[in-house]
């Protein structure tokens, strides 16, 4: 127990996390690439045509993973923000900062692919139903978080302000997720959830899950890359950064 805790605290320091992250990044890229190739292969070459939507439904293999990641990354970001507020660990705030742009990108992709899916199937690029509107709010939350942190020069204060915004915004995540249950929306309900059997053909489901894994690995790899940059930037006046870059 004490040993495990010790290990955690060891890697919670930017100095020891920097090389560890560097070692992990290639592995996550490899996993992202493998899952990406397999997932897209299943999605575009193995999964059958859909009875209702023909080939147009294949957007699901990008749309759903992007939408899942947009919400999941926000939760992880808020988690790190909270840890940073409570324990005052430097690395937590950096993690939250590193995750935000990737979360914003996935939110944008969820909205974009959703528009390209909605136009042919529903008949509209965009509607103001509860699901789409709350996902758009999520995008603004990410953008607001990034802008707020960019506006504050002192990194400690920037972390604190960002953390509060991130935690306030957490309310939006269950709203997005349950919007299709709580209200009448144009967006259909969830095909995959913990409470019922998935309403998708097996190969379609597999394609979607493997693509989601690929996006997840991608998100970890990019966030680790970004956090390494943030560590260097913020610790530029320390001796270890000097030694690290002298190599």
């Amino acid at each position: 127990m004490s040993n495990g805790l010790l290990n955690w605290f060891k890697y919670a320091s930017p100095q020891s996390f920097y090389p560890l992250a560097g070692k992990m990044i290639p592995w996550f890229w490899a996993l992202a690439a493998i899952f990406g190739v397999v997932g897209l292969y299943i999605g575009f070459f193995v999964a059958p045509t859909d009875a209702q939507q023909g080939e147009g439904y294949r957007i699901i293999f990008l749309h759903v993973p992007a939408a899942w990641m947009s919400m999941f990354i926000y939760l992880v970001m808020a988690f790190w923000a909270a840890i940073g507020l409570i324990y005052k660990t430097r690395l937590s705030g950096m993690m939250a900062t590193a995750l935000a742009p990737t979360g914003a990108m996935f939110t944008f992709l969820a909205l974009w692919t959703g528009a390209f899916w909605g136009k042919p199937m529903w008949g509209a690029w965009w509607v103001w139903d509860a699901r789409l509107t709350s996902e758009l709010i999520l995008f603004f939350l990410y953008v607001g978080f990034i802008a707020l942190q960019a506006a504050i020069d002192d990194p400690r204060r920037a972390d604190k302000a960002g953390a509060i915004l991130a935690l306030v915004g957490v309310v939006n995540i269950p709203i997005i997720y349950f919007s299709v249950k709580w209200w009448n929306t144009l967006h259909q309900g969830a095909s995959v959830s913990l409470t019922k059997a998935p309403s998708m053909a097996q190969t379609m489901l597999w394609g979607m899950l493997v693509c989601a894994l690929a996006f997840w690995m991608y998100a970890i790899a990019v966030a680790l890359m970004r956090v390494r940059g943030i560590i260097l930037e913020r610790e530029r006046n320390t001796e270890w950064v000097r030694q690290e870059l002298a190599r």
Binding site: P48, A51, M121, W122, Q188
Partner: peptide, 18 residues
């Protein structure tokens, strides 16, 4: 003035739907 289609969350091949 506008008509939108609402589809369900079921995805299956045509044979299965049939």
């Amino acid at each position: 003035s506008e008509v939108l289609a609402k589809h369900d969350e079921n995805y299956m091949p045509p044979e299965a739907a049939h």
